[in-house]
Write a protein that binds this DNA or RNA. Structure first.
Length: 261
DNA sequence: CTCGACTCCTGTTAGC
DNA sequence: TGCTAACAGGAGTCGA
């Protein structure tokens, strides 16, 4: 599913839509419009305008409009962005291999005949004009050691829950979080504030390395753990069955050998 | 503050 | 073989 890494790819893809005049919209799926966003507000903000910048905070893609508005796109679990018919990410975990235009929930048409569309089979994403950004935590690409330390030391919740809390760290999803904790040899259930300075540093190093590595490899699904995150899956390091359980309601896999305590 | 339980959604898959 | 029920997870809400 799209996590921060995929959305960063989407952002790069969306840059192809910069500086092109918007002539029309398709925003028929009202369920997909979040907050106060309505088709008429979108028309007013976008028609005759241009997108001037593509930004990203965590899993939220932000497109600045030349009238001062900001178009926020969320992709949920199965959403992708398609600019002029091509998608920055073709393969998406848990999404359909098929590519059905009926799943287009939002379309921007440009005066040159091209388009930018959000294709989302399960409709867990959404479009929001001028989204509230104040609740987003440190972005996964720019978080510092001090910031991570602050996030972890200020709560006794499970370390995994803390890392996935978008108001603390923005951009980590379930798969990336399992991958990072697996690499760092940390039990996802451990209280966040139980990690000492050295453990936090090790976690931070694996965090940064995982993000940069999977960004160059092409997505969250390229992680070492990913293929083994299934019932009966084996730890790629020890060859023993991974544990499967819930943390904060999310399916979690970890190795009982090197991620204990 | 923190937790679980619930909601939304729908394509895929496990299991009878 | 064919059906149904559970599952996947991002994000929000709600009550304990």
């Amino acid at each position: 599913m799209p996590e921060g890494i995929e959305v960063e790819y989407y952002r790069r893809g969306a840059e192809a839509s910069i500086d092109r005049s918007i002539t029309s919209l398709m925003a028929d799926d009202l369920y997909y419009l979040k907050g106060q966003t309505s088709p008429s507000l979108l028309q007013k903000a976008l028609i005759g305008k241009e997108l001037i910048r593509a930004r990203r905070i965590g899993k939220l893609l932000l497109l600045d409009v030349d009238g001062g508005d900001i178009l926020g796109l969320r992709f949920g679990m199965t959403g992708r962005i398609i600019v002029d018919g091509s998608a920055p990410i073709e393969y998406l975990e848990y999404s359909s291999e098929r590519n059905n235009p009926a799943w287009d929930r939002f379309i921007i048409n440009f005066n040159d005949g091209g388009s930018m569309r959000v294709r989302d089979p399960r409709r867990l994403g959404g479009v929001e004009l001028n989204p509230n950004l104040s609740r987003l935590g440190f972005d996964l690409y720019t978080i510092t050691m001090q910031e991570l330390s602050q996030v972890l030391s200020s709560s006794s919740r499970p370390v995994k829950s803390r890392l996935m809390d978008q108001s603390e760290v923005a951009g980590l999803g379930n798969l990336l979080t399992d991958e990072i904790l697996w690499r760092a040899s940390v039990d996802p259930r451990r209280p966040a504030d139980s990690l000492d300075e050295k453990e936090t540093y090790i976690l931070y190093e694996h965090f940064k390395k995982t993000i940069s590595e999977l960004t160059s490899l092409g997505g969250s699904h390229m992680g070492i753990l990913q293929d083994h995150r299934t019932r009966g899956g084996l730890c790629p390091r020890h060859g023993i069955p991974l544990e499967r359980y819930k943390v904060g309601g999310r399916t979690t896999y970890s190795c009982p050998e090197h991620q204990k305590g």
